[in-house]
Design a protein around this nucleic acid. Structure first.
Lengths: 340, 340
DNA sequence: CTGTTAGCGCATTCAC
DNA sequence: GTGAATGCGCTAACAG
């Protein structure tokens, strides 16, 4: 029972040729209804399962798209993956998930492996260490379309699917200001990454528009892990900076900051209000009226996959990639309660 | 440039045979060091990439494990996937992620597809609709090892990697009682699923141990979506049931319940305390001293993958599967603050 | 409509 | 240590 039946087995059993069986199994129009039925019956009887490896080798496809993210358990990425998987599944594609864990070295190996697996397309959100894109050339050389999502990449020939970081940063800060905050700290990520610069610039722009002086001691850059948020918050308070609001460039650091505030018995949001980028899990708990970009991961995942599938189907990578900014307003404006 | 180089191309360029190239590339001991170097150099020069599809077809493996979960964006599963991916990556395996979305029909198709892809192993957390396991027999027939995680399956020949649902349910309820709660509601899932029965039984046991009368009107069964939690909470309060605590059998419903409480300006945890199973994102925000099974997903993912890899390497599915209960205490006992 | 032939790219016998 | 031959399971010409 160990050797699985092949199309030859069912061909032999039926006294026909394996190519006919193949056609029947693929529902080719050039096969009699009658033989199709016979083939299908025999296949079921023998417990036949098509070998996709062989099929794909022959067709030179894999029906698979490779996804590289820093870490699947991060809220934004897990919802993005949900969107990716759903869209891919509908189109008959599988999804291979890989985590760079924010390490460039790992990202390199992953991409190499995915190319060897002959994935039909690649969806990447680069690691924080990825400041140069040479390791992605193997994809281009192998004619594998590649779409960046969430984390921006500026080189021509590639497409990006992003949220509007500047506007979202602006909106988040504006929201805090409208809630009565005047001294707003900002937790930012590595300034080499455009997304963090953009969020930071949005923050600054909101301050300026509201005639609030920008103070650089209110801005902390880190890798935005939970502990970074915790420590940043701690440092700010220990330095006696009088803040009443925090805009964190991601949700993870925001959670760390909240943890510290809770420990210090500082009330959220009455004493210090916090808005985190992509902070769906926080916001629902802290202030249900403050709806954030809950759906952004999902939306971006779907959008990016849709675009990638276009390239895959066309079998052609565009000369110059396009950049799609997905509309995901950070904060819905019907937010009702005043923080102060 | 479109036709990628094969071992034949590099063999021809070097005036040797492709089988030697193959051996050299696989670092076979039966090839001269010198030829290995030549081959490797030429491979790099031509930009050769091994075709895993062909290699795997020949070797009749895929270096891939299939993972089926209800939904990747749920916190527990995304951290489980993180653990799965890390463990698989270390062993040289890729991970294909699929979502059943809690639908049996979809789960069937997914498993079928994964078998066709000749995955080397399967990791499944069945959908809520999965009450019978016939659709998984194709895996067994194809000799593909299968390990269940989180959601239990009782049939012999399969292994399970689980948390201790009874004990965790007991601990969660006990925790609420120690915090001063006496009237504790329980949001449960479909009673057909053992995990929910076990959590429920743990809840009951804790009540009994503390001489608290069990009231069945305090127990609500649902599919534990966010909206279910919201509505359950609403119904309880509208029915004027005097509760001061809730133990939710998952985190998603707990979030829904909290949303309703927030809207009603009911304080958490002062008026009503909430503990949700696997509710890492909630607990950190509500009560940082209340550490929950944050790591359980990760731990279970790693454990399950380790076990599966054992089976894969042995190329043999054990006659009777084993059940591993991963130690993940729901609540650390150093929890400091009193709720009331 | 069906059979024949010929590979997809690689790894593994078996010779030498 | 290397080469020649064979086939993993399937699909795509090309005939007929």
């Amino acid at each position: 029972m160990n050797n699985k039946p092949t199309i030859h087995d069912i061909a032999k059993a039926l006294g026909i040729d394996s190519s006919t069986v193949s056609r029947a199994l693929n529902d080719s129009p050039r096969v009699t209804k009658a033989t199709k039925v016979k083939v299908l019956e025999k296949a079921a009887e023998l417990g036949y399962r098509r070998n996709m490896l062989a099929s794909n080798l022959r067709k030179n496809v894999s029906n698979t798209i490779g996804v590289v993210v820093p870490r699947v358990s991060r809220h934004f990425f897990s919802s993005a993956i949900q969107g990716i998987e759903e869209t891919a599944y509908s189109a008959g594609y599988n999804v291979i998930i890989c985590q760079s864990l924010e390490e460039l070295e790992r990202e390199k190996k992953i991409v190499e492996g995915l190319v060897e697996k002959r994935v039909d397309g690649l969806l990447i959100s680069v690691s924080m260490e990825t400041l140069n894109y040479d390791h992605l050339k193997v994809a281009k050389n192998s004619n594998i379309p590649l779409v960046f999502f969430d984390r921006h990449c500026n080189i021509p020939g590639y497409s990006n699917v992003l949220v509007d970081d500047f506007e979202s940063g602006f909106n988040a800060t504006q929201h805090l200001i409208e809630k009565g905050c005047r001294n707003i700290a900002h937790f930012s990520g590595p300034q080499e990454l455009e997304i963090y610069r953009n969020r930071f610039n949005g923050y600054k722009a909101a301050l300026i528009k509201n005639n609030i002086t920008f103070k650089k001691e209110y801005v902390v850059s880190s890798r935005l892990m939970e502990q970074d948020g915790y420590i940043s918050m701690k440092n700010i308070l220990e330095n006696k900076l009088q803040i009443d609001g925090v805009f964190s460039a991601n949700d993870v650091a925001a959670i760390g900051a909240m943890k510290y505030l809770k420990e210090q018995q500082i009330r959220i949001p009455e004493d210090i209000a916090i808005v985190g980028f992509s902070n769906e899990p926080i916001s629902r708990v802290i202030d249900p009226s403050l709806t954030t970009i809950d759906q952004s991961g999902l939306k971006i995942g779907k959008e990016a996959t849709g675009l990638l599938l276009e390239y895959i189907v066309k079998k052609q990578i565009p000369e110059k990639g396009k950049t799609i900014i997905v509309d995901t307003s950070l904060i819905e404006r019907q937010s009702s309660k005043k923080i102060k």
